[in-house]
Simulated scan of single mutants.
Amino acid sequence: MDSMSCYVGLMSGTSLDGIDAVLVDFENASGRTLKTAYVPYHPEIKQTLLDLHFSKAGELEQSLLAANQLARLYAEAVNQLLDGTDVTPRAIGCHGQTIRHRPELGYTLQLNNPALLAELTGIDVVADFRNRDIAAGGQGAPLVPAFHQAVFADSDTPRAIINIGGISNITHLSGTNVTGFDCGPGNLLLDAWCERHTGAPYDKDGAWAREGEVSNSLLDKLLSNDFLQLAPPKSTGRDLFNMAWLEHQISATAQAKDVQATLVEFAARCISDAITRHCADVREIYLCGGGTHNGLLVQRLTHHLPHISAASTEKLGIAPDWVEAIAFAWLAKQTMERRPSNIPEVTGAAGPRILGAVYPA
């Protein structure tokens, strides 16, 4: 095995649960996963990151200190990943932790200190993937559709890859055409509401939501959000969908478990409505991300798309928990090889661009 074909991918998403790390050998185009690791966020760093989503006094210094903390956690994940191997990867692809995403205003912010990460690991780091696309007039997200096209496309069958993370996003693969977009909240509101009312970080398999009943009036209010009516390209995050927004929609008499049940239905409808409106030819859907473990959410999603076959990306050869981290290993490879990795039809950018900034070890 040639170490020069090996890359590390690091992903810490909107769910704020921790860091996924993968070691991938790209000797062949689709890649081969050699090893995985996971480093959870401790409650203090998670709360700091949540706080930094909103403006407050001292946020500049706090964000820089948090970036240093994250770099050390990323290095811990890399060391854990490479322990016991004889591989020296060509580069690390590190997305960083998004705390602001406002492409309509021309900016996005992912906390990270890639220079420190390169110093701590002795490995070249590729980071800051979104800003080049935004500079070209794009949304800077989603970035994974190019990877999905490379490894999941089928020329004969239109299909959609659905990542249910904190925010859900869809990649539509139809022949040689690729589109992709964020379609609304996935686990973000579900996890936050569950933690507030039960103390658990997430509702395992949707068990608590199953005890409640869907409120149609609340569901209608949630589904009326302007973002959901927009045509792609589009992207979103905690800047729009957050607990303050949710609380504004809920009546004072609402039962907590009914809200949870309604949020599951909302997450499923965000995806199914988007498939119906924007991906009408799709015959197969493949799910990845943490939401694949919520049985009730998957059940409701397939209920709304009865004529489309559904499976996890495991069926296509990649475990659903690791798709995004592998994608950032692939994006780092594209950068190191000076190949474009955005899709203008997905992000709205003026054209193909080489993404990412390289921090040599």
Rank of each mutant, 00 (worst) to 15 (best):
E284R: 13
R269W: 01
E284V: 01
R300G: 00
T276F: 09
E324K: 11
E284L: 03
E284Q: 14
V259D: 00
P306W: 10
L301V: 12
E284T: 01
I318S: 00
P306I: 08
N294R: 07
A325G: 09
L316M: 14
T262Q: 02
A261N: 11
G317C: 13
T313Y: 01
A256Q: 07
S309T: 15
A280D: 05
V298W: 07
C288H: 03
I308F: 08
A319V: 09
S312R: 15
H304N: 13
E324T: 08
S272H: 08
A319Q: 13
Q299T: 11
D281T: 10
R283D: 04
G289I: 02
V259N: 02
E314N: 13
H307C: 07
P320T: 00
L296M: 13
V259L: 02
T313L: 01
C270F: 14
A280K: 10
A280S: 15
A256D: 06
N294L: 09
R277C: 06
C288D: 00
I275C: 10
H304P: 09
A319D: 08
C279Y: 07
Q299F: 01
A274F: 01
H278Q: 15
L316T: 06
H293F: 11
V323H: 05
D258R: 13
I318P: 04
I275K: 11
A325P: 12
D321K: 07
L287K: 04
F266C: 05
C288A: 00
D258M: 12
V259C: 06
V259F: 02
T262K: 02
K257H: 14
T262E: 00
S312L: 14
G295Y: 05
Y286H: 15
A310C: 14
L305S: 03
H278Y: 15
A261T: 10
D258H: 15
L263S: 03
C270D: 07
S309Y: 13
G291N: 05
L316C: 10
L263N: 02
L297C: 05
E284H: 12
R300I: 05
V298Q: 06
C279G: 07
I308R: 11
H303V: 09
I326Q: 13
C270W: 14
P320D: 00
D273Y: 12
R283W: 03
R283Q: 15
A274C: 10
K315V: 13
I275L: 13
I271Q: 05
A325Y: 11
A325M: 08
G290S: 04
A256F: 03
L305V: 04
C279H: 07
A327F: 09
I271D: 00
A267S: 15
I285H: 02
A267C: 14
A261H: 12
L301M: 14
A319Y: 08
L316N: 15
A268T: 08
P306M: 07
H303P: 08
K257N: 12
L301S: 06
D321F: 03
A319W: 06
L297R: 05
L263M: 04
L297Q: 06
G291D: 01
L297E: 01
H307W: 03
